[in-house]
Design a binder for these strands. Structure first.
Lengths: 147, 147
DNA sequence: CATGAGTCATTACCTTTGCTAACTATATGT
DNA sequence: ACATATAGTTAGCAAAGGTAATGACTCATG
């Protein structure tokens, strides 16, 4: 357990401490929401489709770094579970567009809610000063995550 | 992009912001170190064995939430790559113990080094104030990750 | 001590998920 | 009109996970 700012003077030491804590924290968060029995790729696909409103299989394959035939199967699975639906592409008969169903959106919402409830619960056990420090750090972590 | 502490007054809002940023940040860190072509389970197994010094296949299976036959295979793979080695159990002839080879330890060290170097590089692009805020938050994130 | 039950790792078989090769349908350029 | 490119899908293969079964070992009991 680190003492407040002790041993964190260098970027390397801070990076090391953050790497360990963040990995552990996100691993634990992931475990809170693993009831849907979707594979990581399936879940990520659902998230991507929701974020973009609609995507083609090719776009999704590239987005998730899998080959198109694999993505065809992922989409088929999610469609079979009623989480995604296919439609003809508006302008290109070779393509299809994929969008999230209300059921799929609900699953994602529940996933997010579960993780955030778990984290919020832990935040409540912190002191007000600790919470304030995290509030100050949150936008910086956000910045780091998009750099 | 969040403005400093704006909209983070509630635990729920802070949890939501942290969930997104931390997931993204750790995802990106993972991508930096994916040259070893180990599966997530193989890597996690290697990490677990190193941390515990020696473990049995049954312990590892439970630790990584896979069934024993699957873990037998993971161990065989890692052993074939010279990253783990098996030995007879000191007191129970049914069991074997698994430990990390110097090569396995070196691979993990390199993995950690790569991730931390990536993160440290990004830390260097922050302002001193931003870095200070992360330094203040680091022990709290550590605390959160073990609660 | 012998026997039965329990424990442990492993093998065999099956399913799922990823890849590559090949194919069909459609779109585009000449 | 024809050749080329694009998009999604199917088929076959490999890898990783599960379940069922097996053999060896350990422990408890009579």
């Amino acid at each position: 357990m680190l003492t407040n700012t002790q041993n964190l003077r260098s970027d390397a030491a801070l990076a090391s401490a953050l790497r360990v804590s963040l990995a552990r924290l996100t691993r634990r968060m992931r475990k809170q929401a693993a009831h849907h029995s979707l594979t990581p790729t399936q879940l990520a696909t659902l998230v991507a489709v929701e974020r973009h409103t609609a995507m083609t299989p090719g776009e999704l394959a590239e987005h998730e770094k899998v080959q198109p035939p694999s993505m065809t199967r992922v989409i088929a699975k999610l469609e079979a579970r009623g989480l995604l639906e296919r439609a003809p592409h508006p302008t290109d008969r070779r393509q299809v567009t994929v969008s999230v169903t209300p059921q799929g959106a609900a699953l994602l919402k529940e996933e997010r809610r579960t993780k955030e409830a778990w984290l919020a619960q832990r935040l409540r056990d912190l002191t007000p000063e600790e919470r304030a420090a995290l509030r100050a750090a949150a936008p910086i972590l956000e910045k780091l995550s998009t750099m």
